[in-house]
């Protein structure tokens, strides 16, 4: 557990989360959510919880992104004003 790497990863997670909830383009928000899940997986591995990190990488960054992209393909892409 290295504190500087933790701080850098947490900073990027916060930046990506703020960007994902402020974007109007839902497809970009979904891709940012995938990046968020990947950074969260890195944080879990950094905190020496490999199993949780693996689940986060497989489910959060893989399956959930595919599900949300499929959902966007059935609905609208742009958030209404």
């Amino acid at each position: 557990m290295i504190v500087s790497i933790d701080l850098i990863l947490l900073f990027f997670v916060v930046v990506i989360a703020i960007a994902a909830i402020t974007l109007r383009d839902l497809l970009s928000a979904v891709i940012l959510l995938g990046a968020y899940s990947f950074l969260m997986a890195l944080i879990w591995v950094e905190l020496q919880s490999v199993d949780v990190g693996f689940t986060e990488a497989a489910v959060g960054a893989g399956a959930t992104t595919a599900f949300l992209v499929a959902t966007i393909s059935r609905t609208v892409r742009w958030e209404k004003k």
């Binding site: 490999v50 199993d51 990190g53 693996f54 689940t55 497989a58 489910v59 893989g62 399956a63 595919a66």
Partner: peptide
């Protein structure tokens, strides 16, 4: 080790997706 039925199933399903 790390992993298990749930994660392996998700990875296997990702191949189909």
């Amino acid at each position: 080790g790390p992993g298990g039925g749930f994660q392996g199933g998700v990875v296997f399903a990702s191949a189909f997706i």
